[in-house]
């Protein structure tokens, strides 16, 4: 089995696994970072979103062989003290219910605001399409993104 070197949240990991294994399982089962979630497995729901070189990627459908040498950020790497503006806004707006999809929601929102600090409603809609929440926290996600945009 080949060995892959991964840089996740600034830390190097050496992982022995099949090259076609999705990045999600390397992050969860090998690096032990469980904040990134498995939900659909086919890049339809966004619970597994991480950043690869700053861009949002659905890690459940991204093969391990394609990430060598790239910088991966997961929800755990967003801040030391849960104080990234998006996290602060998420807490202030009391967004999560069950919480399972929220790592993906937050990583999608952070990527949006990094690219576009003052997104319009339509730009928020576009960026958050394909990031699903069964609890129905969307109205609060929208409010929190607007708030984070002001906090940043």
């Amino acid at each position: 089995m080949p060995t892959f070197s991964l840089n996740i949240n600034g830390k190097d990991y050496s992982i022995d696994a099949e090259p076609e294994m999705p990045l999600l399982w390397a992050i969860r089962d090998y690096a032990g970072l469980t904040g990134t979630k498995f939900s659909c497995g086919i890049a339809q729901c966004g619970a597994c979103i991480v950043h690869i070189d700053g861009a949002p990627v659905k890690s459940c459908s991204f093969p391990l062989s394609a990430v060598a040498g790239k910088r991966i950020t997961t929800i755990e790497g967003l801040s030391e003290n849960n104080d990234h503006p998006v996290q602060v806004a998420w807490i202030e707006e009391q967004v999560p219910q069950c919480g399972y999809c929220q790592s993906g929601q937050i990583m999608a929102a952070v990527a949006l605001l990094d690219q576009n600090p003052n997104p319009s409603d339509e730009e928020i809609d576009m960026a958050m399409t394909g990031v699903l929440c069964r609890c129905g926290t969307y109205p609060r996600i929208k409010k929190a993104i607007r708030k984070a945009s002001k906090l940043s």
Binding site: G35, N82, Q87, V95, G99, Q102
Partner: peptide, 8 residues
């Protein structure tokens, strides 16, 4: 429970 649901 909310803060723990914003940082994984």
């Amino acid at each position: 429970d909310i803060p723990s649901k914003t940082n994984g």
